[in-house]
Design a protein around this nucleic acid. Structure first.
Lengths: 346, 346
DNA sequence: TTGTACGCGTTATCAA
DNA sequence: TTGATAACGCGTACAA
């Protein structure tokens, strides 16, 4: 005897479908006796309303989707991500929503979008957002972009990536560093930083601005940029590659803390002293950053705040108020212990 | 012109609903010309099949639900959780699934269950699992329990909590500690450890076994157990309370690393040396544990493996194979730097 | 309290 | 081979 449906209950209880529906959703409109009776029958027959059918009728799911640029495991390995979700989660709690993690489906973000039964999407750092936006529009659900270049008419939440990046680079330059290796988060652009967009692009812009103040650029002799998988392992691998080369930088500027941590680990393994031999700056200020020894100098961004703000915006859009605002939250350089003057300056 | 539906497209393209459906789901059954035509019209009218309606028809959602015992933000604050999700995520990737985080809805786990449109549930450390199980059964979707006492007929994944806890306590006792403060994860039981079930119960059993070997028990003079919110802040608060008392323990045995980290932070703030003045053991072995200074001695559990195994089991159940196996993964004491002999023994 | 229309796409079954 | 017809899944909303 598989799933009983509303009709089975109605029949057995000697009432109408409507009555059964009321018993579950608006018991006040039925006599107490009928409600008890219906609920008893439902209990007995193991019935509970089908959420899909309900969504079909109400046109609502009680779920928001977080559209991910990468598979779930990759996202989870970066402690920045849970923090971000924490912010979204606060809104879920107050609004009674579930959160669906929507990773690319067989490698396709598009397929993921059209399949997800949600009331709205939060998109995180979408790369190819021309096409993706189109698909999102076709879905006719509201969405808010996060960490993407602002789009006219669509609410977005960003942080001041350029400003934060600039401060980080300025700090290194001010300390006297001139041989700096930038570890960029891997994109599809294979290091062609002129083509970078979104977060990546903004940060590179910040670096460039700072370099310019010192008459340098990313193409200068001892300034380098390479792309790095945004994981601890990515940082380890990149460091090893860097250290194998003839010329060593005096500072490494990582675009995420998790990369920076990989670098630190690999550096320690090589017996390199930080910051005496090598200075490092990260980005994000994940909780771990302050707990490391030495504590990581990094650019703080309000991750929780970002998630909260975006989710709040989405919830309001779902509720009907449509005011596509672009938010930009501040970033700040947090001076800790992984930066000093370069070795040869001592 | 709001959402076009399948009929609108059929009409405009001069074909039947069936043809439109085929164009999206099984293009091979249509002539190439019709497919192109239909897709063009769909594109033009901004149509994409409604996922809810599709689920209604197919009876499948392509989503699994992770049922949480607490709100999303609380879960995310414990680094153990993202690791666990990482394991689930691997299965999502290979099986093309989305993952729905299902927190209690207005405080009710039951309401959360009946509202979530998923193909199956993973339940994590459910407390009141008598009633919850009933609701889950009524939903007629497969589910796998994690970190709950094994239930006959329902697949479950656990780790050897008792064994790990025992090893931790034995280690402290072997080092000479006799004044030990256990920091339990908060339950509804207010410290009545005899009533503990699930993970909590198993760990306490482990502690008791070890204590017994030394002729001690949790009720012994210098052995104490208090409940602690499972967050860093919980650890901080508990430590402060403990240190305010007249008698100080020589060791603290925390039931999670995140609590242990809170304790360490608070201890450092008081100028207490670890492990010279106070030994600490955690539980979980989150990535952070090895990065701390001093590195945290803790009981490792295979979090990723746990998530992966549970999700895999669920996927198989959804696919139809029904073999309710109970898995128990191993735990191991990882000796690092936060335990030494007690101060007065020196 | 009830009857009934409705929401939307999928999938046998069947016709051309 | 290509495509159409019609039944189906399930609960909700509105008028009666």
């Amino acid at each position: 005897m598989p799933k009983a449906n509303i009709m089975d209950i109605a029949l057995k209880a000697g009432v109408s479908k409507t009555a059964v529906s009321f018993a579950f959703n608006d018991p006040g409109r039925l006599s107490e006796a009928t409600v008890t009776k219906i609920l008893a029958v439902a209990e007995e027959m193991g019935y509970s309303p089908d959420p899909i059918a309900r969504s079909m009728s109400t046109g609502t799911t009680g779920t928001i989707g977080l559209l991910l640029p990468q598979p779930i495991p990759d996202m989870m390995r970066n402690p920045y991500f849970p923090e971000f979700i924490e912010g979204i989660g606060k809104v879920c709690t107050t609004s009674g929503l579930s959160l669906m993690l929507v990773p690319p489906l067989m490698g396709s973000v598009r397929r993921a979008i059209v399949n997800a039964a949600v009331d709205g999407f939060l998109t995180l750092g979408l790369e190819e957002h021309k096409s993706t936006m189109m698909v999102l529009r076709q879905r006719h659900v509201p969405f808010v972009t996060i960490d993407s270049d602002p789009i006219e008419g669509i609410p977005g939440v960003n942080v001041d990536d350029a400003g934060g990046a600039k401060k980080a680079m300025e700090h290194l330059l001010a300390q006297g560093h001139r041989a700096i290796h930038i570890l960029a988060i891997r994109s599809g652009k294979r290091g062609n930083y002129e083509e970078y967009v979104g977060t990546l692009g903004a940060r590179v812009q910040g670096y460039l601005q700072a370099l310019l103040e010192y008459g340098l650029s990313i193409d200068s002799r001892h300034i380098k940029l390479t792309e790095c998988e945004n994981t601890e392992k990515g940082g380890v691998d990149c460091f090893q590659k860097i250290w194998r080369a003839r010329q060593h930088p005096t500072a490494i500027l990582a675009m995420s803390d998790i990369i920076a941590i990989g670098v630190i680990k690999a550096a320690h393994a090589e017996g390199i002293q930080i910051p005496q031999d090598l200075s490092i700056i990260g980005f994000d200020d994940i909780p771990l950053a302050s707990l490391l020894t030495p504590a990581l100098t990094t650019v703080a961004q309000p991750s929780i705040q970002k998630g909260l703000l975006a989710a709040n915006t989405l919830v309001r859009m779902i509720a009907g108020s449509i005011k596509p605002v672009h938010h930009c939250l501040p970033t700040d350089l947090v001076l800790r212990k992984t930066v000093s003057v370069p070795p040869r300056a001592k």
